[in-house]
């Protein structure tokens, strides 16, 4: 910020409104531009282009769902195993892709960060919005497909959406922390992948807590992802089987990670600007 003070005033092209509105508008434009850029660098302009964004989680989710269906185990409450695993896997896919990409986010946008108005937070928001939009879109496709073709109507759509948004926020906070940390310690990026991979059995994506004895349940609930997956499942299947989650605990996680992430990115930017 001290740097901002020394920069000479840009020529005023138009009437300037309050700095807050100005700032929000500029940040919105920056994020919008970053999203466009991100889509083009990642998916290109030809063929299906950004539709790939939806296909990737959809395809993976369907494959995982089919595998579980072919496995043919019976789920309690007469829940459709395909839907069960897809509703668990797709949100986890979002977590994994957001967190996995966090390490390289700043590095791949390093050139852009030399522009004064592009901040690391903008980069993270743009990337994470893209991922979140893809996953929420896929969930909408799957849920409406299930309702349309198989007449499996979700019990509480608002709850699914709410839990998904909470998950986005949590992943956003985590990704900001990780991005800042990787810019400081390069080697951390190598650790993120195995850790997210190991998180898979711990995140409650493929099982309901109801299947476990209560002491294991309590241990697993320390992981906020488990609560979110349970909440999504309850929104999908209602009370076919009991769900266990603790939203206030998740909100604490979101607040904590976002605060730390925002603060860490600010300090990280100073380091980035030096070289």
């Amino acid at each position: 910020m001290s740097a901002a003070g020394t920069v000479p005033e840009p020529p005023s092209r138009r009437e300037r409104s309050h700095w807050l509105i100005e700032g929000i508008a500029t940040q919105g434009r920056v994020i919008g531009a970053l999203i466009m850029r991100e889509m083009q660098t990642r998916f290109g302009r030809h063929n299906l282009g950004f539709l790939w964004m939806f296909f990737e989680p959809l395809f993976l989710g369907c494959m995982v769902g089919l595998m579980h269906t072919a496995h043919g185990r019976q789920l309690p409450g007469g829940v459709n195993p395909f839907l069960f695993s897809i509703v668990g896997y797709v949100p986890f896919f979002m977590f994994r892709s957001i967190v996995n990409r966090a390490g390289s986010a700043l590095h791949s946008n390093l050139t852009l960060l030399f522009h004064r108005q592009v901040t690391p937070v903008d980069v993270m928001i743009a990337r994470n919005l893209l991922e979140a939009a893809a996953v929420i879109g896929v969930i909408v496709i799957i849920v409406s497909g299930a309702a349309w073709f198989f007449e499996i109507v979700p019990a509480n759509v608002a709850q699914i959406l709410f839990a998904l948004i909470l998950m986005c926020l949590l992943c956003h906070g985590l990704s900001m922390m990780l991005a800042a940390a990787t810019s400081r310690w390069e080697g951390l990026d190598r650790l993120i992948h195995p850790i997210t991979y190991l998180m898979m059995p711990l995140s409650g994506a493929f099982y309901a807590l109801h299947w476990f004895p209560s002491h294991l349940r309590e241990l697993l609930l320390w992981n906020p992802l488990v609560s979110l997956h349970e909440a999504i499942r309850e929104g999908m299947f209602g009370d076919r089987f009991p769900s266990y989650y603790d939203i206030p605990y998740v909100v604490w996680w979101i607040l904590g990670t976002n605060l730390l992430g925002l603060a860490a990115l600010r300090t990280a930017r100073r380091k980035l600007n030096i070289f």
Binding site: M1, A4, V7, W19, L20, E22, G23, I24, T26, Q27, V30, R116, Q117, T119, V121, D122, L255, G256, N258, L259, L262, A263, R266
Partner: peptide, 22 residues
């Protein structure tokens, strides 16, 4: 604690806006 954390986040976000406005 809650207010301090929320204030922290809000002030960081606002600082972001200010940075963009500058």
């Amino acid at each position: 604690v809650v207010l301090a954390v929320v204030y922290g986040i809000a002030s960081l976000i606002l600082a972001g806006f200010r940075e963009h406005a500058a």
